[in-house]
Each structure stands twice: as structure tokens, then as C-alpha cells.
């Protein structure tokens, strides 16, 4: 369950401009798209929900937790455990292999490590062949799939994805969306996707337009 009260946010260096965001109210397992023109603050909203930015007003419930009431270190822990982030550009720990990146993510979440889950995930996302490769050796499609795997490996309560399909062709786009939906189902988590991609819209019932 994810719920936001009327959030607003202002960047430190632009005092005049404040973003106001509509309420979001997702029941458990409900997915949503956030759509809107660029510059309207889609990514900002996503980062507010992930606790990476601190809102000027309002708060975010994830499950029963008001995340902006947590202390800095509590928020760190909470993010590690319950939030899965998939960024527009995929970032990894360069010196580690695909598999090591996944196990690192799992370890840092401080949840019990589920080797079976990791193995299954690697298979589902077709990363088996490259699991021992360094992350700079893999293709763009594989990078995208790995970043999805990193977003869901620890079974978060909410998966937040920022334009996950923007650099992909139609086939890959379909695949990424269905993978995300499937993983969200397996993890019993809410999936929130930012997009301006027309191809994605038909896959989700709930649209939040900024």
C-alpha cells in the first residue's frame, strides 16, 4: 500500500518555484503510471516517494510507515529493505560481476538472503549466461534487465521505476513491462512507473497525470 498526502517540494536554489503533486492512493498490489510532460517533476515525485528528497510539505506512507518521519539512518534502512528503485540510466558497482551486484544489493538490504530467489530471478530475466561477467561487459538490454533485477531482488514493498523503457525497442519494451508486472506480483508489491512512453500506457489501468 502506497499513499501520499498532498506533497509539495522546492529545490533549494529555486525559491520561487514549488512543485505541487496530486495525492496518490494505491491499495495493496495496485500498480500505477505517472505521466506528464518533461520538467513537470515526475522524477522529483518518485524520489520523494523513495525518500531521496525531502518534501516541503506532505508525507508518504509505504505500508504503515510515514517515511518522512523517520530519522536519516532509519530512512536509509527502510529504503534498503522496502523500496526497489530502477533508474532511467542503469548504474552498477563497476568492479563487481552481475551476480555479485545482486548479492551486494541483497546483503545491504539486511534481509535474509534467499539464494533460490536470486537464482530464479537470474533465470527469469535471462541473465544466466552473463551472471559471472563484469557489468561493463554486458549489452544495453542486459543492463536494463539487470537494473530491474536489482530493483526487485530484495522483495520490496514498492517498486519505483523511472522511464524504464525509454531506450528500448518495441520487443524489449513489452518484455520489460511484463517482467516488471510479474515481479511486482511475485513480491506482492506496488509498482509505480514514470513514463512518457505511449507503448506502456495500455498496460496499466491507473494513470496519474501531472
Amino acid at each position: 500500500m502506497v499513499r501520499t498526502t498532498s506533497l509539495s517540494f522546492a529545490y533549494q536554489n529555486s525559491k520561487n518555484h514549488t512543485f505541487y503533486f496530486p495525492r496518490i492512493d494505491l491499495t495493496s498490489k495496485e500498480n500505477a503510471l505517472i505521466i506528464g510532460p518533461s520538467g513537470i517533476g515526475k522524477t522529483t515525485l518518485l524520489h520523494l516517494m523513495a525518500g531521496l528528497l525531502i518534501p516541503k510539505k506532505g508525507n508518504v506512507y509505504i505500508g504503515n510507515t510515514l517515511i518522512h518521519q523517520l530519522t536519516r539512518s532509519q530512512l536509509n534502512d527502510f529504503r534498503g529493505k522496502h523500496i526497489g528503485l530502477i533508474f532511467q540510466r542503469a548504474y552498477f558497482i563497476k568492479s563487481l560481476t552481475v551476480q555479485e551486484n545482486l548479492s551486494m544489493r541483497e546483503k545491504l538490504s539486511r534481509k535474509t538472503i534467499d539464494l533460490h530467489r536470486r537464482k530464479q530471478l537470474i533465470e527469469q530475466l535471462e541473465l544466466t549466461e552473463i551472471k559471472n561477467k563484469k557489468v561493463h561487459e554486458i549489452s544495453e538490454g542486459q543492463r536494463q534487465r539487470l537494473s530491474i533485477a536489482l530493483g526487485v531482488v530484495h522483495k520490496p514493498k514498492v517498486i519505483l521505476a523511472d522511464e524504464p523503457t525509454s531506450n528500448l525497442d518495441d520487443a524489449n519494451c513489452e518484455r520489460v513491462i511484463s517482467l516488471l508486472k510479474k515481479e511486482a506480483q511475485i513480491c506482492k508489491s506496488n509498482l509505480v512507473i514514470i513514463t512518457h512512453d505511449q507503448r506502456v500506457k495500455s498496460h496499466f489501468k491507473k494513470h496519474i497525470t501531472l
Binding site: 539512518s73 534498503g80 558497482i93 545491504l108 539486511r110
Partner: peptide
């Protein structure tokens, strides 16, 4: 900084 920021989102302080 990307790696370090990434580690932060993974729950490290």
C-alpha cells in the same frame, strides 16, 4: 559518485 549514491539507495548510510 554514482556508485556511492547507488549504495546509499541500497540502504547503506
Amino acid at each position: 559518485k554514482h556508485e556511492l549514491a547507488l549504495l546509499r539507495t541500497y540502504g547503506t548510510n
